[in-house]
Design a protein around this nucleic acid. Sequence first.
DNA 1: GAGCAAGTAGAACAATCATTCTACCGGAGA
DNA 2: TCTCCGGTAGAATGATTGTTCTACTTGCTC
Lengths: 173, 173
Amino acid sequence: MTDTKTRIAAGLERAFAENGFAEPNIDSLREAAGVSLRTLYKYVPSREEMVLCALEHRHRRYMEFVFDQAEAADEPVLHFLFDKVSGWMASEAAHGCLFHAAVAAAPRDERLRALLARHKKEVARAVAELSGLPDRQGEITLIVEGLMQDWPLHGDRATESAKNLGDLLVKAG
Amino acid sequence: MTDTKTRIAAGLERAFAENGFAEPNIDSLREAAGVSLRTLYKYVPSREEMVLCALEHRHRRYMEFVFDQAEAADEPVLHFLFDKVSGWMASEAAHGCLFHAAVAAAPRDERLRALLARHKKEVARAVAELSGLPDRQGEITLIVEGLMQDWPLHGDRATESAKNLGDLLVKAG
DNA sequence: GAGCAAGTAGAACAATCATTCTACCGGAGA
DNA sequence: TCTCCGGTAGAATGATTGTTCTACTTGCTC
């Protein structure tokens, strides 16, 4: 039995991922969290905090989804990475990166910007470690960002483009 | 003297670009448009329409900024393209692509999604025509998307990564 | 100079919002 | 058995929202 705070965070994450950050009001967030209004505010005392809470939960789930069991790959490591990212988009992020979406909705919010920066930094570090191409970290990051942005529009064609670029990167050393 | 509708569209575009789509209320939009409330509603009869109006104006300005005078380039054409895009980010889009931001704020809005798709399609077509690499359209689009997403975080380093990837693409033919 | 088109300024309104508060319930431990 | 603890249900509140409306001004044209 997961504890209440985690259940709330998971529900909030799902609500924001499905409906964006502008639309959902407190009552729909409460319903998604599956909890009473009083309990919701007890654990997450304002709407702003609800956004941060959802994103922190998102970060943990994303890192686990993309980077766990990475050594089990029997395909080129960048193909494996881009397939994982595409799989994440397909199952969890049909509307694109949730962190960029949050910042886009409220670009003046410094805490959100900081959270985005921290998330992307940790992703870049994990990517560099996984790929074994530390001096190509910038290029791989850019491909991943492009893939996440382009996937909602072009689906698997975006994945193929990412893999092609990855191949060129590997070949060039 | 530009006509009223254009002045309103320009003001709305600026307001949404600076403050995102969730935060600005009608009165701040009115102020940015530099017009009275009555006039604002006369030309743009709802907040939803204001978003669409701003994005249509944005599209025209973006296409002009990035793709006009493209033949005057004396550097590799993809370098020219990525510099243009970076220049756009620096002067106009410090928070990333406004179309993706709009959709991210209200992912259920079909009209917004359609506008995003149309914008990206026209950009992809112009990119293919400019680059002279029509069968690499997917890869170039992905680099451009990655650059626009990554630039707010990494600035010129993102531009360099994009150019490196572009060079690999050209070399591979 | 009358009339009209196109604007400003801002009050009024109904709806919705985030947040707080009151009242109640089930179970576990002393 | 009593009594907290952690929860539910939902009403109350006060601020804010998008939108509409009234009253007034300015410049152009017949």
